[in-house]
Design a protein around this nucleic acid. Sequence first.
DNA 1: GCTAATATTGAGACTCATTCTCAATAGACT
DNA 2: AGTCTATTGAGAATGAGTCTCAATATTAGC
Lengths: 173, 173
Amino acid sequence: MAAKQAEVTLFPRYAQKPEKYQQWLSSIQERFQEHLGRRGLKLTHQREEILRCLMAAEKHLGVEEMYTILKKQDPLIGRATIFRTIKLLQECGLVAEVGVFQNGGAKFELKADRPHHDHMICVECGRIIEFQSPMMERFQDEAIKRHGFLALWHRHEIFGRCAACSKKRTGTP
Amino acid sequence: MAAKQAEVTLFPRYAQKPEKYQQWLSSIQERFQEHLGRRGLKLTHQREEILRCLMAAEKHLGVEEMYTILKKQDPLIGRATIFRTIKLLQECGLVAEVGVFQNGGAKFELKADRPHHDHMICVECGRIIEFQSPMMERFQDEAIKRHGFLALWHRHEIFGRCAACSKKRTGTP
DNA sequence: GCTAATATTGAGACTCATTCTCAATAGACT
DNA sequence: AGTCTATTGAGAATGAGTCTCAATATTAGC
């Protein structure tokens, strides 16, 4: 099941701690349930499956990819339900959007309490590299304060060529 | 003509120097012409008008807005031509896209040799605030290097409420 | 467990930005 | 001016995302 998709591993910090990882996943499901309860919404099989799909895939997923995966278990599932559920998951801070440039739609990732990070996106192979830079964050926050702005969310994506693709280019073209 | 659109002033550095400003505009037109020549493309009235439109509007413009403005002078102009020309202008680095979130399409701004900046976008009033942070840039570049990434362009947009809209909220709701 | 009240679902219609197609036209070079 | 192409506008096409609605599933109360 998790065969070829180890390209981007979202959860390295759990690599050696499977029980902690399971705990984390359960806590996410609980949080979703809470959010639904708070808003008088219902927990359906589809919603459970969609969240589970994002939890199982240790990479960034687009709606179309999720649709393909989910249809195997539930051939009747509809794209609209996936869109709707993702919106709910974003609302309660469990999922974040990684906007992808021209061509196919957005991708999503499990956010929960993962530390904040931004993305570098390879325009050649499509790989998404996550990176952290506390100093960068710090000066960003400083700029936000300086302008009296109230930040709700942000999008910081760097497009270019990843190390591997740059090398390929420099070698024999 | 330039009545209500002083909300975002893109060119404050030319406020006191109209002759310099004119020089700058001419240099932009030349650069566009050069780019077209280099690629064996032609300079048409439409292309000239579209660039002029972006130069005249001292704010970020969407395609639909440009279409409305341009139709006044050339009622036959087509949206497709605007899209095509913007693409050309982006290619040669004269225009940059400011992606705008869910709802209506992207906005564009004259880039040319303006210093690099990023954007804060007010989700309440739609205002786009430009900001610079050399330190932030510096640590971003550092992160890029650290990952052996070759950056081609980036997108850094902060969504939230501008100072004015935050104040409105805190007052009598 | 059953029922009522209500939220949810999937299918397909719809929207809206952007791109494509193609026949007519306009630049650029001679 | 004439020729060779690139360009144009109109409208069709695409594609992500949203909406509508009748059928269905979930939940709380019994």
